[in-house]
Design a protein around this nucleic acid. Structure first.
Ligand SMILES: [Mn+2]
Ligand SMILES: [Mn+2]
Ligand SMILES: [Mn+2]
Ligand SMILES: [Mn+2]
Lengths: 228, 228
DNA sequence: TATAAAAGTTAGACTTACCTAACAAATGTT
DNA sequence: AACATTTGTTAGGTAAGTCTAACTTTTATA
């Protein structure tokens, strides 16, 4: 059985592997930064995880999850996202509050609990941030999504996920009344600074920055998403 | 903030204080046994908890929670029992499965979570074992309860709690179709060995041992309890 | 290609929570 | 009261997870 800490290292490695899509590897410093520890600490742990055959690791080499490590990491991510969904859907937590608590809940050991929770929630496919919830067998639901910044003038799309999950961003979205499923029409794109004028639902036109447009995932095909 | 382990020591002390009703004190060995550690370990921790002003402790003396320690212990017990109720009511866990998982869930830190969970469950007063759930302010709902072994011949009563929460006992109760709220009529008391003949709901008469009768709490006043 | 910068490792130390073995105090029993 | 038993403490040690400081390897750049 894995310790709380070991689980966090595996999950970090999985998330980094999603980030560096093509090469699902990570470096020691990258890992350490992600976990909020010093590189020396990460090195120690990586040696331990290698012993348990959870990562492929060689001195000064790149770090990669083994198949076993990846499966275990997926279970943790599954738990994290199911709990986030529970907090959001059932306990009225807001978009930006769920993550912190789910960081703790994801370590509760009970496979029955996870599966029953999933059932109780109606087998959701995506968490409150639009991220896919791994299935019990490790499968990840896929959703073709594009950044808002890719959308052409005149096109209408629908919000499906957030790229940035920081509190400031999530609270800004709340203020703009944007949530998963909200339709957005791109009225005008300003080449000068990458900003754009958009219409959120039936609200009045509003300008958003390039940074904003690059932090929001949308789908061009109108898709009915699970809503609150 | 308290560590997972410190919390367990406080909770153990609170539970022992309920057991030794008159004198809510505990001894080092008693504590150690309850927590599954060696007495030396308990001594170490008690010194630490004394430093934090959570327990009153003097060398070779009896151990007592301070007011602050008691309040913190009540919060943990509150979380434990609310989570047990959640697992039982919402996720279809059985009577004997809830405790183990609640042992982990009780350590999740988020006061919002506890209060929202309580609301979600409809402010339950008793957990699946019939034990009172501390309120947010620390109050404990009271229920006058008596052991089944106290009931006189011919009287009808209602199950309100279990004294023994072991898996064997809980599974036996399940087999007998006894749950919180089940009515029981005492048909005959056998003085010889303390056993009794009882009628469970509308079932046929059945004999139960003294040990059994001393493990089940009932109320003589018909009371409508929360049921599954 | 030589050198500087970045990335990664090792050694040694600290804290928490646990242990065993030896000891000390309190309590019970003849 | 003396002794034996139970109860509790101390000393010293271990493992996990963290740190800093010094070192090594790899990579980037002049
Ligand atoms: Mn999250
Ligand atoms: Mn999420
Ligand atoms: Mn319990
Ligand atoms: Mn209980």
């Amino acid at each position: 059985m894995l310790s709380y800490t070991e689980e966090n290292y595996l999950k970090a490695l999985l998330k980094l592997s999603f980030q560096n899509e093509d090469k699902p590897e990570a470096g020691t410093n990258e890992m350490a930064a992600h976990l909020g520890v010093k590189p020396a600490t990460a090195t120690d742990m990586l040696k331990k995880l290698k012993e348990k055959d959870l990562v492929n690791y060689k001195k000064y080499g790149k770090i990669l999850l083994t198949e076993s490590g990846k499966q275990q990491a997926l279970v943790i991510l599954r738990k994290h996202r199911l709990w986030e969904t529970f907090l959001y859907e059932k306990l009225d937590f807001s978009w930006d509050e769920v993550h912190e608590v789910a960081e703790q809940l994801e370590h509760i050991q009970s496979s029955k609990l996870v599966d029953k929770l999933e059932e109780f929630l109606g087998f959701p496919e995506f968490d409150p941030h639009g991220d896919p919830i791994p299935k019990a067998n490790g499968d990840l639901p896929i959703l073709e999504k594009v950044l808002l910044s890719e959308v052409k003038e005149g096109e209408t799309c629908q919000v499906v996920a957030v790229k940035d999950t920081s509190t400031v961003f999530l609270q800004y979205l709340e203020k703009l009344q944007i949530t998963i499923g909200t339709p957005i029409k791109v009225l005008e794109r300003i080449d000068f600074d990458g900003s754009m004028s958009i219409q959120i639902s039936d609200q009045e036109a509003r300008n958003v920055s390039m940074k904003f447009a690059e932090s929001l995932f949308i789908t061009l095909h109108h898709k009915i998403c699970q809503q609150k």
